[in-house]
Design a protein around this nucleic acid. Structure first.
Length: 948
RNA sequence: GGGCCUAUAGCUCAGUCGGUCAGAGCGCGCGCCUGAUAAGCGCGAGGUCGGUGGUUCGACUCCACCUAGGCCCA
């Protein structure tokens, strides 16, 4: 029998479904948010509140979003929504990074129109070709912006999706030129030479991603050169032993590098021919080198720390009239060679950088086709570098008595992605930003200390990367980017580097995009009266180089965060992956410091990488890649958001099947709790039924205390950016305090008491108050689900959860005395539950807890008093049919469990089971009219009757 | 090879200054309920705190090294 009294109960009712079916439901909510303009209303609501600006780091527009993008944007959204609900004006303008090599490469590679360019790089210099490439790149970028926009929106991220910033927009491209002009004006920009990867066969510079590494055979050459200036450190008859795999670069040798911390040794060696000679090299490598070059014996004469060799000079290996100094460098290793490194600043990256430090000449006598120029001297001019040049170099070494030993070596070597031929380093003229001009580096380092870095230890990464970064190479020899606004005089060849001219160009770009650089004739790009400051010439050609894409993204703060966009500079927060310390955090800082003398952010939050469940990076080859789309399609964006929130993003975070399964479980638990709470508010109108605090039951007041503690913790965790703690704290409250305790305990009151009794309304008031606050406090996380539940919340409330106010507990809810009492009662409850479990399992005394009566024995007078004070509420509290405190438990009590100062016994409750509330009561059967009901239920049923 | 960082139960996370700190929730096992029901409740079993050595009366907590993993750089 389904219970004849069932209809007299107040069972929960709600339209909030248990099954979420988020993949179907979420799109409807998205549409509703859009139609109702909830994001706009949220901004409008906080128009007068203090702004909170999170400046979005622009993702690159060349493919679908991956999990890392999703994590990043969800974290941002979480923070922005929290700040909005807390009462901030929070415009979020998303952006995209559009220019650069990957898109240009994809376009040139895929589009048949550019088939020729792939092999003939010269064609790239044709303005018409450049325009075509840029058009295709622009379309390509726009295509992916649209797709990514949809994917971000689907995640539930709020923002100005209709007017994002794009680095390829005309305003942006023009704005970038203005910044460049400022930097020129202040003297930050200079022209210099530096070696870059160069393909002699394609006659072009290569970007890093165009370089492919394969095995190659190279000469492994040992040579020696006599000391010239001993500085009194070594004898004048000592020869320095050096190793190289690129003999042709010896022509450009400008120094020999030693490691400051390694020990070097002067040794007397004997060759196979019986010749004796004093040599200098790293002590640890002496035996290795002796073996390789065939010294039959060696005798160490003196050990010298590398540090003491700085400043000595040695004969140049190729040119007899030159010498090369000894310098110190940390990159010298003892894994191969002699511990002495041949330095050619024009032909190696490290060589270049150490060369800058020592003021060495960037000598690179090689033309575009990889042939030595006249600068290399008559003997080398016209020879191809590589094999031909190396053979010649060896010949010269031999002639000068510098040759020692030669063999071949297989190693990985950079090759051209296009023609697969080996690359060389060749010095080219580039534009630089001086990092030390106007003390920029120093000022940036100071400024770093004033920024809030989260987690705090990340300050080390940004600090080191700024401290050690070389001058910024601003120029790239590519097509898809913002042109460097420089011209060259056709008469004298001098560059025209004029801020006034640049600002003129900027205005044009702002109207027509940077494509105007090639669409217009040169004269149209210049102010009418422009003359060459060197020779007065009036005819110019344009620079073909474009700006590094890091200049684009580094400038976003200056271009986007403007008052006229409703934003503010500097931003409050940057939030990106940990790779951006060397990237965006760095480039943004440098440009902001140079332009405005302040960092562009007040706080910088860094998150880790997304790994699989075993902690390995996700790779196609490992088959462990999970895309955000598949998570959303299968489980919904809220589950993804919950996962992001639950993970400690300051470290690398993991995702896999089990983690996902756990998140789905957690989601269901939260959802069902919302549902149960909503269900029990079906007849509750807060305006009419709310029970004032001082008339609530103590248990209900205790819950408000717990809730106020929860809110304080959540707020603290949000403010500290510790979102995973928000999740754990919230989830624990839902599971432990609500589902397993309060909501379970209070069911009897909600279901069986007459609907309008103060006891029932008191519980409903608490449930209403908690649910309302819980929804708002978790709206940043479960944006869809909280909104869905919010719509079903009774009483007056804003139309969207995002238009609500952050929950503020009443001061009176905080009640330590009450909390202590209930904490003690909860301890008693634990013992009681164990006793009930024993009674059920071992003794088979009861099955249902409602069949039991608890007997509590304590010698602790305080506890005794406490139990007596709450005697009337204890059956509800333990969900049993009776509770009695006894001085001594009867010896025959079958089940006893002991706690601190406490023993709990269990026995069957006397009387009969009430057919309505299922509690056992002695009085059941005594009422003539209601023989199967207990007194409480009789009262309830009677009162219902009177209402009819 | 260098810089920065991580390593606590199957999972996600707590563990302030070294001494009841080895914890929580989930999952799992067993059971109850059938008036949150593709739900709810209870009890229980799970960890030599990545490894090795050291400092200390005592270390998950300090130091060194190793291993595994991540990001950046070379």
């Amino acid at each position: 029998m389904k219970g004849k009294w069932r209809d007299t109960l107040n069972l929960p009712k709600t339209e909030f479904p248990m099954r979420a079916n988020l993949p179907k439901r979420e799109p409807n909510l998205l549409q509703w948010w859009q139609e109702q303009k909830i994001y706009e209303k949220m901004l409008a609501k906080h128009r007068q509140d203090p702004p909170f600006i999170l400046h979005d780091g622009p993702p690159y527009s060349n493919g679908h979003l991956h999990l890392g993008h999703a994590v990043n944007k969800v974290l941002k959204d979480l923070l922005v929504k929290y700040k909005a609900l807390q009462g901030h004006y929070t415009p979020f303008v998303p952006g995209w990074d559009n220019h650069g090599m990957p898109i240009e490469r994809a376009v040139v590679h895929q589009d048949p129109e550019f088939a020729e360019i792939r092999h003939d790089h010269e064609k790239l210099r044709d303005p018409q070709v450049r325009i075509r490439i840029r058009e295709k790149c622009r379309a390509f970028a726009q295509h992916w912006v649209e797709i990514q926009r949809k994917e971000f929106v689907r995640l539930g991220v709020f923002g100005d999706w209709e007017k994002p910033y794009l680095t390829m927009s005309p305003e942006f491209e023009g704005g970038e030129i203005e910044i460049f002009a400022d930097l020129v004006e202040q003297g930050y920009v200079y022209r210099g030479r530096m070696p870059i990867h160069w393909c002699p066969s394609c006659r072009t510079a290569l970007a890093m991603i165009e370089v492919e590494y394969y095995e190659k055979e190279s000469p492994s050459l040992f040579f020696w050169v006599p000391v010239r200036d001993t500085k009194g450190v070594i004898d004048p008859d000592v020869w320095l032993v050096v190793w190289t795999t690129t003999p042709w670069t010896l022509i450009a040798n400008r120094a020999f590098a030693f490691h400051p911390d390694y020990d070097y040794v002067v040794a007397e060696v004997e060759s196979a021919q019986g010749e004796h000679r004093k040599v200098l090299l790293a002590e640890r490598l002496l035996p290795v080198v002796a073996e390789i070059v065939g010294w039959t014996s060696y005798r160490k004469l003196r050990r010298i720390p590398g540090r003491q060799l700085e400043g000595l000079t040695f004969a140049h290996p190729i040119f007899e009239d030159r010498t090369s100094p000894a310098i110190l460098a940390d990159f010298v290793t003892l894994t191969e060679g002699t511990g002495v490194v041949h330095i050619a600043p024009g032909h190696g990256k490290e060589d270049f950088e150490i060369g800058r430090k020592y003021g060495l000449e960037v000598f690179s006598p090689v033309d575009e086709a990889g042939r030595f120029t006249a600068e290399a001297g008559p003997e080398f001019q016209g020879l191809f570098v590589g094999k031909e040049g190396s053979e010649k170099a060896v010949e010269v070494l031999k002639r000068h008595g510098h040759f020692l030993h030669r063999e071949t070596l297989r190693h990985t070597y950079p090759h051209c992605w296009r023609c697969k031929s080996p690359l060389i380093f060749r010095a080219t003229t580039q534009w630089f930003l001086s990092v030390d001009h106007q003390n920029l580096r120093h000022r940036a380092l100071k400024a770093i200390e004033s920024v809030r870095w989260h987690p705090p230890e990340t300050i080390n990464r940004i600090y080191n990367s700024v401290k050690e970064r070389p001058d910024w190479v601003l120029s790239r020899q590519r097509a898809w980017g913002v042109n460097i606004p420089v011209f060259y005089c056709e008469d004298c060849g001098e560059p025209l580097v004029d801020p006034r001219v640049m600002r003129h160009v900027a205005q044009i770009f702002k109207q027509e995009t940077a494509d105007a650089w090639y669409r217009r004739p040169v004269q149209d790009l210049l102010p009418p009266d422009t003359r060459c400051p060197h020779c007065g010439g009036t005819r110019f050609r344009r620079e073909d180089d474009i700006l590094d894409v890091w200049f684009d993204s580094g400038a976003t703060n200056l271009i986007v965060l403007r008052e006229e966009n409703g934003l503010r500079w500097p931003s409050d927060v940057y939030l990106e992956g940990s790779d951006q310390h060397r990237g965006w955090f760095n480039s943004s800082l440098m440009l902001a410091m140079a332009e405005r003398g302040q960092p562009p952010y007040r706080a910088v939050i860094t998150h880790g990488w997304t790994l699989d469940e075993q902690g390995r990076a996700m790779h196609k080859s490992l088959g462990n890649v999970i895309s955000p789309q598949e998570v959303i399609d299968r489980y919904g964006a809220d589950v993804l958001r919950l996962w992001v929130t639950s993970s400690d993003y300051t470290e690398d975070i993991r995702l896999g099947p089990e983690i996902l399964a756990r998140m789905v479980d957690s989601y269901r638990k939260i959802r069902n709790t919302y549902r149960f709470m909503l269900g029990n508010l079906y007849d509750f109108d807060p305006a009419r039924h709310r029970v004032p605090y001082d008339r609530m039951k103590p248990l209900d007041r205790f819950l408000l205390h717990q809730y106020s503690q929860l809110l304080a913790d959540l707020e603290r965790f949000y403010e500290n950016f510790e979102f995973h703690r928000v999740f754990h704290r919230y989830f624990n409250f839902v599971v432990v305090d609500l589902s397993a305790f309060y909501l379970d305990v209070v069911k009897d009151r909600l279901y069986t008491w007459a609907p309008d009794t103060p006891e029932r309304r008191s519980a409903q008031t608490v449930i209403y108050e908690l649910l309302r606050g819980l929804l708002v406090a978790f709206a940043p996380v479960l944006s869809f689900t909280t909104e869905e539940a919010w719509q079903l919340l009774p009483g007056d409330h804003p139309e969207s959860v995002f238009l609500a106010d952050w929950p503020r507990p009443e001061a009176s809810w905080h009640n330590e005395t009450l909390a202590r009492e209930f904490q003690r009662l909860l301890e008693v409850r634990e013992v009681a539950l164990r006793a009930l479990e024993t009674a059920r399992k071992d003794q088979k005394l009861i099955q249902d807890r409602l069949e039991a009566e608890l007997l509590l024995e304590t010698q602790d007078p305080d506890l005794a008093a406490l139990l007596d004070r709450y005697a009337a509420d204890l059956p509800e509290f333990f969900v049993v049919s009776g509770v009695r405190r006894v001085a001594d438990l009867p010896a025959e009590t079958p089940v006893v469990e002991a706690g601190e100062n406490l023993r709990v016994g269990v026995q069957r409750k006397a009387g009969q089971k009430c057919a309505r509330c299922w509690m056992w009561h002695e009085a059941v059967g005594q009422h003539p009219e209601y023989p199967d009901l207990c007194p409480k239920c009789i009262r309830a049923v009677e009162s219902l009757r009177h209402e009819d």
